[in-house]
Design a protein around this nucleic acid. Sequence first.
DNA 1: CTTGAAAAAGCGAGGGA
DNA 2: TCCCTCGCTTTTTCAAG
Lengths: 153, 153
Amino acid sequence: MDSIDIEILKLLQKNARVTASEIASEVSLSVPAISERIKKLDSSGIIQKYTIILSTQKMNKNLVAYMFISLKHPNYIEGFVELVENENEIIECDYLAGDYDYLIKIITKDTKSLEAVLNRIKTVTGVQKTKTIVTLSTVKNTYSILPYEDTNM
Amino acid sequence: MDSIDIEILKLLQKNARVTASEIASEVSLSVPAISERIKKLDSSGIIQKYTIILSTQKMNKNLVAYMFISLKHPNYIEGFVELVENENEIIECDYLAGDYDYLIKIITKDTKSLEAVLNRIKTVTGVQKTKTIVTLSTVKNTYSILPYEDTNM
DNA sequence: CTTGAAAAAGCGAGGGA
DNA sequence: TCCCTCGCTTTTTCAAG
């Protein structure tokens, strides 16, 4: 991965549908050279996925909340994770070190739909303790890590 | 937005570089019909952006942490937000209702680089109290809300 | 929404620094 | 190895119905 790859990744992150021709003229290489580099970035797994981000506002999902969850026992992980995977309004779920076991991010329509999700979570077998935090606004969201060269490896 | 648009959004979310031809054969419409629908989903803002998700592992960013932050006074918001925007390793930042003012998500290389980020945050003028939580593993991350029809609007 | 032709983009082979 | 150019195929765009 050199600085040209970084530049390609930046352009794809800004717009994943940018054509190889456009990238080629940006970085002053031929189209096949760009295609070849993208193919390598793909197959090496550096590019995990090409995706679209949907507007929460346009989709009427204006309520963002975080919920901390503790389970009674690791036995209950499997059932809990299954629920997490099936709930479309749970966007993220991390397993934590510390007081609580999990942190999930929920994006939903309003307080009523949030209540419904929270209740489904709280009634999963093994869920012991929860704490919910509602967000007022989102200051930053880059969705992915940014591409840059690692200077201290 | 009808069920065909939903289908298009799902396919784009799975792979934002899928061709209109492929979508067309999936949903049994002509290529121009698909292009026209995508153009509308674009210009209406429903599709917020086409982007790539980079592999944290391949980019050597294997440490995910959350940090809660309280400011002494709303006067300090501007300076804090500026730092947040400039720190590449801060992926998300939400303004909260509750005990703390902000929750940020940090993705970085290791504990050493995390320490560096945390110290930069803690030394921003007006930062009063912080609490950091390290994640052990990521259970789920969809990056965007999912496209589906709203049945109760 | 469709079809069909023109324009653009992408792909693969062969060869050069 | 990485890059180029050239010719061919696929995709996109646009006009007309």
